[in-house]
Design a protein around this nucleic acid. Structure first.
Ligand SMILES: [Mn+2]
Ligand SMILES: [Mn+2]
Ligand SMILES: [Zn+2]
Ligand SMILES: [Zn+2]
Lengths: 140, 140
DNA sequence: TCATTTTATAGAACTATTCTAAATTGGGAT
DNA sequence: ATCCCAATTTAGAATAGTTCTATAAAATGA
């Protein structure tokens, strides 16, 4: 049942060029929240000549078509998130690594702000990853 | 009893040069979460010749001494937050304006992640500001 | 095949921030 | 008051992530 990257692109209305597929193979299937640069490195393992411009064009295209989300943690560190449905994040202060948390692992309640129409709630937990524990059972 | 900017700087161990005071006068007393560029504009109203380098040097200095916090919402939009104690944020999708929310206006509970040592919980609400309501009674 | 459109590419341009190296400042000490 | 000197400020160069531009290559399909 698992769709190929080509299928995913077609379903999103994106014609699956070899470059796009090479990028998709990595970026749509990683939980690592990579930067554009990390995507470049991975994509070049499959398609050594792929250009930087194509990486950016393609990542932007994927975001526009809802296959990726993007967020900025600090200046000059934009990352891409392959998980597009709502979820939360834990960020390791030491390594900077971002972990997905299932949406229902965090509950948020808030006052009724009559001034605000809330569309989305995003929680970021920061701290340290406990070293003695196994790598973590992570989000969907 | 309200401390002058000069006092605040001295207490933080920063010698209050005229440039630093000019910047502090604005950035330590605004709730608007300004960018470096907005700080430059405001500081130049008091000290027209102040340089860009000084804006960045000083903002970084204030952050290092705990007078400001910084965060990035999107690539190339780093803002400074004069409120350094824990609180949450509402971001207006349309205008990009950031509003502080009192820490106790949002309650978060989460599973025990034995893999993570959580040090900080940050909530960002996104949506639209309700136009018919008054400008909002905002955070401390 | 050929014409047309789409996609990819190199490299220039852009922009926020940091760096560098030189000038200016201002508070003691004399 | 003057001198000294460390601290501070400054202009402009450098850097880095991203976007733009103009050209080339590839795919499409009649
Ligand atoms: Mn998948
Ligand atoms: Mn104040
Ligand atoms: Zn995620
Ligand atoms: Zn704030």
């Amino acid at each position: 049942m698992s769709q190929t990257s080509t299928d995913i692109l077609r379903e999103a209305g994106i014609s699956p060029s070899s470059q796009r597929v090479a990028i998709a193979e990595f970026v749509l299937h990683t939980g690592s929240h990579p930067s554009a640069d990390e995507v470049l490195v991975q994509a070049r393992k499959r398609l050594p000549g792929i250009s930087v411009a194509t990486i950016y064009n393609t990542l932007n295209l994927f975001v526009e078509h809802g296959l990726l989300r993007t967020f900025s943690l600090s200046q000059n560190h934009t990352v891409y998130d392959a998980c597009t449905d709502p979820h939360h994040h834990f960020i390791d202060d030491e390594t900077g690594r971002i972990h997905d948390l299932p949406i229902d692992a965090v509950r948020v309640s808030h006052d009724n702000f009559d001034d605000f129409d809330i569309r989305e709630v995003q929680v970021v937990l920061r701290g340290r990853t406990n070293p003695q524990n196994p790598p973590a059972k992570l989000a969907k």
